[in-house]
Design a protein around this nucleic acid. Structure first.
Lengths: 104, 104
DNA sequence: TCGACACATAAGCACGTACTTATGTGATTT
DNA sequence: AAATCACATAAGTACGTGCTTATGTGTCGA
């Protein structure tokens, strides 16, 4: 039930935002904090949860810690979604529209 | 931020199990309860959350309410996942077909 | 129409979670 | 070595969540 850990990690809007920010480009915890009204420990705790869910991974760089998206977590979600593939092809059109909206 | 509602819905292991059971075949709330050690109100509440996340939809049938998987929710997850396609590992064969369908 | 049934809603409670401030740890600079 | 910086951890607190029992709503059969 590792997917459960992932869904729990993404259930928090702040963590979702952090993940999206990292998806746009790797950065350290301080840079991540810029713009988000959140304390340093809070950020550290959120990153720990995302790490536990394999959605994010760290890389020490001097006294900075660089964070980046971990493909493992996304692969797990993709695997979970694939189990229910039988249900969504009927809605391909809706998905296409959604994707188009996201592109612009 | 509708995806957040979905992730929150799937963050609970009991709801995950309910969803999986429904994915194997539509059934009413009572049948769903069979095997799971959970009260009737709890099941009703879980189904309400899954409904709110568009992961499940209902259909009145006499005094029963038949529940089934709602493709809308899955499509939303697929859409969310698609945003991070750049990170998907190339080795995830399970999702290649999914990708192909979304790309066409 | 009355009782039984399937399910939803209300209210209350125990526990989990996200935040805070305070402090610890390790690396860099002077 | 001492100060500083980037980040992690500790501890406490307010709030959310999932459960329970009790009750409400709508449907069916006798």
């Amino acid at each position: 039930m590792i997917e459960n850990t992932i869904f729990k990690a993404l259930a928090d809007p702040t963590r979702c935002a952090i993940f999206e920010k990292l998806a746009a480009g790797s950065m350290n915890a301080s840079d991540l904090r810029a713009g988000m009204n959140i304390s340093q420990p809070a950020m550290s705790q959120h990153l720990a949860v995302l790490r536990g869910a394999k959605l994010v991974r760290e890389e020490r760089q001097g006294r900075f810690v660089n964070y980046e998206v971990d493909p493992d977590g996304l692969a797990l979600i993709a695997g979970w979604l694939a189990k229910y593939r039988a249900y969504w092809p009927a809605r391909v059109d809706a998905l296409k529209a959604l994707l188009k909206d996201m592109d612009q």
